[in-house]
Nucleic acid binder design. Structure first.
Lengths: 250, 250
DNA sequence: AAGACAAAAAATGAATGCAAAATAGCTCCA
DNA sequence: TGGAGCTATTTTGCATTCATTTTTTGTCTT
């Protein structure tokens, strides 16, 4: 490798010499794609901010060609926007966009539940039950973060139990798009909504045990619909106007 | 066999001078993407066939850079595969892949139905009813092709009625992936299954009229599940070994 | 004659170069 | 002082070029 990384910018991750580490990805383009996607999903770039290619190239230590390929893919995934002749910006989600995304996620999880009922094993159910009680513990201790994690794991377990890689990939894609929001959405939970969510989770588990596919499908959809409501409300309050260009005084 | 593609130098479509005609797309890359996607979706390239960049460039009359960008996007969409250092090939769907795709489509339509019930207007329902009777006419006349079209239009109308652009886009993506199969799947319909499908459509319309969301969701899922069954069977019979080179002469 | 090895040819992956478009900067004027 | 208009710089889009990797071809050995 000869291209000395211009010292202009700080590399997004430590400049690993070999491949990207934990993920097996051979091509530079693929590696770039993974890193850029993470970088965007994790919210390191302010929403709506213009992101000059040159800067990204310097940050990543590569030329523009593979970067542009990665950008095109990220745009296709809905994470960024590509304005003709005007560069890439992190996609800014309107309230309507969020509603739509939440609904699609709800549909996917609802589908996952239905499919899971057809093929889930007792062991998988047992594992989800364990997560459920773990989550219940967090609930009792008012441990928001722990609750969030267990909750997420439960939902992911259901998706995994559906044994449908296509679904899983699609689900992951949407999850990435709303990840930022999802997190804050979780903290939006008021005490009451929290208790409600716990009850819904009981119902989910119950339907799952009985392998009641269409029932579970309904419950999951409603559960996520309620979540959506909380999330959107929360965001509507919090970020009314200026989501970018933070006033540099504070 | 080396390439079922027209010989070198023949553009896929006449080299439109201005913009792409009916679609508004400004960038060359975008134009290329649309054309290539259509080209693949319509099945002009044999499945699993290697597609040399050079040849495509000549066909499209462009250089490799925008073409490669488009290929990356198509790969992200699941239409083609990109083997490292070994070029692009049209993605070959295994039977399992198809099952998964059909299930996800079923989930998406099921979701669409549920959402549609919340917001659909009487006019939209009336339009779907018209399509339904039109389809029934085709059914009575044993007009397979007409039936197929009306059927497709009904399903698309339901998706449209959900008023969720994200869902619509995602649905279109999956529809593209299985389009080839979908078509032949349709011809797989035996007389009996056909009658069954008509009855299911009656039920769909009924649930829609009553705005019975979760009921419609169930019916749609089952309807597509049955379709899936027919399609997969058909393909398992017909294309054991050679999944390409469709004898479309029949 | 069949298989193995090696060199040539071709294809891919990435970098660089160049023209067009957009943004920034500057001058001039009311 | 503030804005319209023009110029310079930056940035994007695409073509071209360079370096590897893969594939093909040809020869030699057993």
């Amino acid at each position: 490798m000869k291209s000395a990384i211009p010292e202009t910018g700080v590399p997004i991750t430590p400049p690993v010499a070999g491949n990207g580490g934990d993920r097996q990805e051979t091509s530079l383009h693929g590696e770039i794609l993974l890193r850029l996607r993470d970088h965007v999903v994790e919210g390191n770039i302010p929403e709506g901010a213009r992101v000059p290619e040159r800067k990204l190239c310097e940050m990543l230590g590569i030329s523009r060609t593979p970067l542009r390929e990665a950008l095109k893919v990220l745009a296709a995934e809905g994470l960024i926007e590509l304005l003709p002749n005007r560069g890439a910006r992190v996609r800014q989600l309107s309230q309507r966009d969020l509603e739509e995304l939440f609904d699609v996620m709800a549909g996917l999880e609802s589908l996952a539940g239905r499919l899971a009922c057809e093929v889930i094993t007792d062991e998988e159910i047992a594992a989800i039950e364990r997560l459920h009680y773990e989550m219940y513990g967090h609930y009792l201790h008012r441990d928001m973060h722990g609750y969030f994690q267990s909750n997420q794991q439960i939902h992911e377990s259901i998706v995994a139990a559906a044994r449908n890689e296509t679904l899983k990939t699609t689900y992951a894609n949407f999850a990435g798009r709303i990840r930022r929001v999802r997190y804050s959405a979780n903290f939006a939970r008021k005490r009451q909504r929290w208790a409600e969510a716990m009850r819904e989770h009981e119902a989910i588990l119950d339907a799952l045990r009985r392998r009641a596919g269409s029932e579970l499908s309904d419950i999951l959809f409603q559960h996520l619909r309620n979540k959506r409501g909380a999330a959107i409300e929360h965001l509507a309050e919090g970020q009314d106007s200026a989501p970018e260009a933070a006033p540099h005084g504070s």
